[in-house]
Amino acid sequence: MTTFIPSITLPAAVFANPYASILLPIACGTAVGFSVQPKETQKSYMALKQPPYRPPPYVFGPAWSVLYGLMGFAAYRAYNTGMNPFASTEKHLLTKQGATLYTIQLGLNLIWMPLFFIAKRPIEATVDIVALTGVTGYLTYIWGQVDPVAGWALAPYLGWLGFATYLSAGVGYLNDWDTASKEVDSPPSTKAKDTKYVDEK
């Protein structure tokens, strides 16, 4: 059971406004994505050994934009349903607890990419995404009790996090938990047999 912690929770005005609620995670996710230099990130991604079923790099941007939007929509739905004057005291409590969990999960979400691609710390990044998945699972359960639509809106995000956890752990394991200095500008030629680029075609 978690509790409502105002000092680490996003302001109520963010949750109450549909535009702010939906656009905030999209804007934050986009800002973090650009801050890690996408071209450099793609080089690193190309150079790493990958587990089966990993998607191509261009899938991640659109997928995360949709998931961030659903996340913000869920926050708006849950908060406005649960904080309605006619809602029960229990729903009020669950909504406020969920607001704290939502803020925590957003923070955990936003630090994964810098941990993995900038700091090149796959162990810490995997621990982060495992924690993120756990917090989001609990949030989905709590806000699902407040408003089923909010719970279902978080379901695709939770499912993607499960897949992303597999990818993060898989990449870490296949690369001996060392992703530092593994990048190339282009696929290797036949003469460059010592490259670390992984050609999976």
Rank of each mutant, 00 (worst) to 15 (best):
residue 156 P to Q: 11
residue 39 K to P: 06
residue 178 D to Q: 12
residue 58 Y to F: 14
residue 122 P to T: 12
residue 91 K to R: 13
residue 128 D to S: 09
residue 149 V to Y: 03
residue 87 A to L: 05
residue 136 T to A: 12
residue 5 I to S: 06
residue 67 L to H: 05
residue 29 G to Y: 01
residue 191 K to C: 09
residue 39 K to I: 12
residue 49 K to C: 07
residue 60 F to W: 10
residue 119 A to Q: 11
residue 111 I to G: 04
residue 33 G to E: 06
residue 182 K to H: 12
residue 40 E to S: 13
residue 184 V to L: 07
residue 94 L to T: 01
residue 111 I to A: 07
residue 53 Y to W: 12
residue 126 T to P: 01
residue 29 G to Q: 04
residue 16 A to M: 07
residue 29 G to K: 02
residue 53 Y to F: 15
residue 131 A to T: 15
residue 40 E to K: 15
residue 75 A to K: 01
residue 6 P to I: 10
residue 36 V to Y: 03
residue 170 G to P: 04
residue 115 L to N: 03
residue 173 Y to V: 14
residue 22 I to H: 02
residue 88 S to A: 09
residue 124 E to F: 12
residue 91 K to Q: 12
residue 173 Y to L: 15
residue 191 K to I: 12
residue 19 Y to W: 13
residue 171 V to M: 15
residue 27 A to V: 15
residue 5 I to Q: 08
residue 64 W to C: 04
residue 179 T to P: 02
residue 101 L to I: 04
residue 50 Q to F: 03
residue 133 T to K: 00
residue 148 P to D: 08
residue 55 P to Y: 05
residue 27 A to L: 13
residue 118 I to P: 00
residue 189 S to E: 09
residue 58 Y to C: 09
residue 25 P to H: 07
residue 116 F to L: 09
residue 63 A to V: 14
residue 64 W to I: 06
residue 92 H to A: 10
residue 17 N to S: 14
residue 128 D to I: 06
residue 31 A to W: 06
residue 168 S to W: 00
residue 26 I to T: 04
residue 187 P to I: 12
residue 128 D to V: 10
residue 101 L to W: 00
residue 65 S to R: 04
residue 125 A to R: 01
residue 43 K to E: 13
residue 171 V to C: 06
residue 12 A to G: 10
residue 152 W to M: 13
residue 135 V to E: 04
residue 102 Y to I: 02
residue 93 L to I: 11
residue 120 K to Y: 03
residue 143 W to V: 09
residue 132 L to W: 02
residue 171 V to W: 00
residue 85 P to R: 08
residue 185 D to L: 12
residue 77 R to H: 04
residue 189 S to R: 06
residue 201 K to D: 14
residue 66 V to S: 11
residue 102 Y to A: 07
residue 157 Y to M: 02
residue 187 P to L: 11
residue 57 P to K: 09
residue 169 A to C: 09
residue 10 L to E: 01
residue 69 G to P: 03
residue 189 S to P: 02
residue 37 Q to H: 11
residue 85 P to G: 11
residue 57 P to W: 07
residue 39 K to C: 06
residue 29 G to H: 02
residue 65 S to V: 13
residue 155 A to Y: 11
residue 194 D to A: 14
residue 116 F to E: 02
residue 178 D to H: 09
residue 54 R to N: 14
residue 36 V to D: 05
residue 149 V to I: 15
residue 182 K to Y: 06
